[in-house]
């Protein structure tokens, strides 16, 4: 006897029951076997869906990687190429205003910055690709910064898991890393606190330290990191603010509308009626 294994719209196979010639199945036995076949079908379907969603997540992460490469390394390489052209011109024409030394300095800086971008990308994807999500990546980040500095860092993450899209997770992670790196290098702080909260349709991220505040820092110290944080915040359509609270220290705050909120606003009417 055969019992179909499948779900509503897919047929995966059949459950075959071997019986002797004279044997028949009681109604209750048939029902039981049909139910078993149904459960197997559901399990297969569930597994396929999980595989599909993992495939989609991977696909999305690849898209992010491509975008990140475009925004960082591709630009740096174009810049380096231009500097090589300038170097050639400077060497060919000694009377020119520009000196080879000056251009070599630009090249050196450009290569350093490209390396920095590459490291950042590698870190992001090492932390992300292992599939443990933002929560774990933040914990690892805090451990890493604790280990390399004397700053006491507290992580207070109250975001529900899987609230953010992979893209949002990467931007949040990098903003936190950039802010922490500034705390460790420039703030002269002994303590830092990272908070992540969901406030209605928004996400609030804050990195607060008890260091010397913004005014006391060297002009350029914060510049590069700030640009990175601003760019990422813009990608999230978010708002990034840096303040020195009256009590001292620095507060970096990010607020953005998370994608789940946006999707609910726009995609819901398009859903077929039967799906809940």
């Amino acid at each position: 006897m055969a019992f179909p294994v499948g779900d509503q719209d897919q047929r995966f196979g059949v459950l075959l029951v071997d019986m002797g010639d004279s044997e028949t199945l009681e109604t209750w036995q048939q029902r039981l076997l049909a139910a078993v076949a149904g459960h197997i079908g559901t399990a297969i379907d569930l597994q396929q869906r999980m595989r599909e969603s993992r495939r989609l997540a991977l696909h999305e992460e690849r898209g992010i990687l491509a975008r990140e490469l475009h925004d960082s390394l591709a630009q740096s390489l174009s810049y380096l190429k231009i500097q090589v052209t300038r170097l050639a011109a400077a060497l060919n024409d000694p009377s020119d205003r520009m000196t080879p030394q000056g251009v070599i300095e630009e090249l050196r800086e450009g290569i350093n910055s490209a390396y920095r971008q590459l490291r950042e990308l590698l870190t992001t994807f090492r932390l992300k690709m292992d599939d443990r999500g933002l929560r774990r990546a933040l914990q690892d980040t805090v451990q890493e910064f604790r280990a390399r500095s004397a700053v006491d860092i507290i992580l207070d993450n109250q975001l529900p898991s899987s609230l953010l899209s992979p893209n949002e997770e990467i931007h949040v992670l990098q903003i936190v890393r950039e802010a922490l790196s500034n705390v460790v290098r420039h703030a002269k702080a002994s303590q830092a606190r990272i908070t992540l909260r969901r406030v209605g349709e928004s996400v609030d991220v804050a990195i607060i330290d008890n260091g010397r505040g913004l005014e006391a820092r060297p002009e350029r110290a914060y510049h590069y990191g700030l640009t990175i944080m601003r760019e990422r915040s813009e990608s999230l359509n978010g708002e990034l603010t840096l303040t020195s609270p009256p009590g001292g220290g620095t507060r970096v705050a990010l607020r953005f509308r998370h994608r789940s909120a946006l999707a609910q606003g726009t995609a819901r009417p398009a859903l077929p009626g039967g799906v809940r």
Binding site: Q75, S76, S78, Y79
Partner: peptide, 16 residues
Amino acid sequence: DDHPLFRKGVADLIRM
């Protein structure tokens, strides 16, 4: 162009 580094490169190039 929204990439600061590339803008700087173009500026250098045009100056040449």
